[in-house]
Design a protein around this nucleic acid. Structure first.
Lengths: 195, 195, 195, 195
DNA sequence: AATGAATGAGGCTTCATTCAT
DNA sequence: AATGAATGAAGCCTCATTCAT
């Protein structure tokens, strides 16, 4: 593995293990068995390194979602698969997920706006799926973009609770996930609350 | 305002404006127009200061939720009101919310376990409401605790998206909130996904 | 006990328990259950407090030595009793001993010269005893002052080793003391090294 | 001179000139005309710096003692030479001596046990010499280890008095040393105190 | 491509002391 | 006689970064 990639990898690990505030050039360097100075041969500065990380992470999440799209699924199945994909990605790549969604913009100096736009395009993907669905009879879609965000927000909530270790220890994680997905999907079905 | 309160206030502001990692005793002191040393007259150390903040924030959130409980409501109404209360609290007290739920445990050295338990008791409140409801015919409650966490996770997702400024600028915040609550409540109604 | 005495007592305890460098006005105050400010009501400043401590400690050591002098003893017995008294005092009042002899003058800002002179008068006491002794046949006393210092130096060495916890744990302290006193006394007996 | 050595040297000087409690990273740096940060390029932290100093000092003392051992000497001569070597070392390397014996363990956080053992091995050296001597008829050696400690304690006392500047100014230092060595050696000769 | 040395800023914390009450 | 609030200096240490090699 090239040093550049090693640095990126190490940084991801540090991020998830010790949190954003504990990331330092020295720590990264030490983990990668190089001098802090060496990092500057591959990245302009700390911001550059972190932004590179963000970019790459966004790319892999988008790819994972796109790979789970199949026009042959019905809408419900498609949403369920998207939800599962999303949650799986987040739990299997907590570092990347952390970087994309859980690091507050304020902590990221000079986080450029076009990166944000890049992240948003992931929701467009979900919005497209909902919009293009044939199954309008089943679903509430006054506005597919809002629905996409609603869908995502709920998924993000589920993931956050787990990644932040706020889930009650008495609850098995898989049960929580299954039931959450069930709730989320059901919320999208076009049935008004019974009178 | 007493200096103690001023320090707490300033810290909250710093937290929301610049993020957790930018909080420092010097910065807090400077904002409060005192020497860093003076903070130690009111708090044992940085942890003590942050934990005080956490404790107080948890208290106010729990109070807000408790105040919104009324046994005369039907379950749906009660859940809706809880959801609204929760989201309103988070948006009106972003600093407090941030402290309670969005700061990663890793960033909080020695975050004591009993504080965690304190936070959890807020979910128990929700769990109790679901459990004690008369309206079992309407709701899926195989396990009220899991349901409470699911409910909370979804609310947390909605709040996170907004507080983290990840909501698409084309979407009005209030519309997003209303629709999200609708989805969440609907997900709890006892209707299986149509075959 | 008056607060003034309480402060002196607490300071002595701190000195022996935590070492000179750990003594601080705040720590002293906290141990005495008063505010740091209160110390300044009884002592001009930290130096004043420490010097008071020194003065009082010197006084008690001198008194102990003087009390162990009895003109009816023979020289050897008198020296042995002085040695025992000295070592006992040091071990029973380690704080005072520490203050008098083991704190380096450099650590004690503005340690006044007349205080040093006061300490020295303790050796004069020993010197006097040696000088006035009838038993010149037994002892090497070309210069009683030097002898007094030699005597003291050896006692001090014994005490230092114990107080500094440098004595090998395999050696019982009492055995070490007994044997040391034996050696010291014997060194004073007027017998040339066998050819 | 390398900065590392310069730092060690400067620290030794500070120790003897201002005392242990006045040693600070800033002061050391300032004396060495570098930033405090630079010290950390050569030593992990303050303890590491001090322990390095200790280790090196112990090594040189042990070497000096070992070099003065010669199996051709008689015991008395050997002890006298050891005593002279010891005192000479202490007076010529006061900083090192200070570090090894006069700094209280309490002041030295995390002073590792194996370092203590290292120091002790110096006494074992003396104990060995006494034990292996042919001249048992002349000497009291119920327990050579205790004798070694007694011997050392007395030497240490002599050195302490001088290094702590407690020797009466009327007494020439060399006279004091000569006479002290005489006393110490004589104390070891196998003659009971006359009845 | 990589390093070692260095720095200035800033992190948390404790210090002795003063001042108004 | 005692306190609480406050300060400026200093303690140890880590940071991101630069520069010469």
């Amino acid at each position: 593995m090239s040093l550049r990639n090693e640095i990126l990898q190490v940084t991801k690990e540090l991020l998830i293990k010790e949190g954003f505030s504990k990331i330092s050039m020295r720590r990264i360097a030490s983990r990668a068995n190089v001098t802090a100075t060496s990092i500057y041969l591959h990245f302009k500065n700390k911001d550059d390194l972190l932004l590179t990380l963000i970019e790459e992470s966004i790319k892999t999440l988008k790819q994972a979602l796109q790979d789970s799209v199949n026009s042959e699924y019905g809408l419900t199945d498609q949403l369920r698969i998207l939800a599962e994909t999303y949650i799986n990605y987040a739990l299997n790549h907590p570092q990347e997920y952390e970087i994309i969604y859980m690091v507050r913009p304020e902590e990221m100096p000079k986080y450029p706006k076009d990166k944000f736009r890049d992240v948003r395009s992931a929701y467009e993907l979900i919005a497209d799926i909902i919009r293009e669905s044939d199954h309008h009879e089943y679903i509430e879609v006054e506005d597919s973009l809002i629905s996409a965000y609603t869908f995502w927000a709920q998924l993000h909530g589920v993931v956050s609770v787990i990644l932040n270790r706020r889930l009650d220890t008495r609850i098995p994680q898989s049960t929580f996930i299954d039931q959450s997905i069930e709730h989320i999907i059901r919320g999208f079905i076009n049935q008004k609350t019974p009178a």
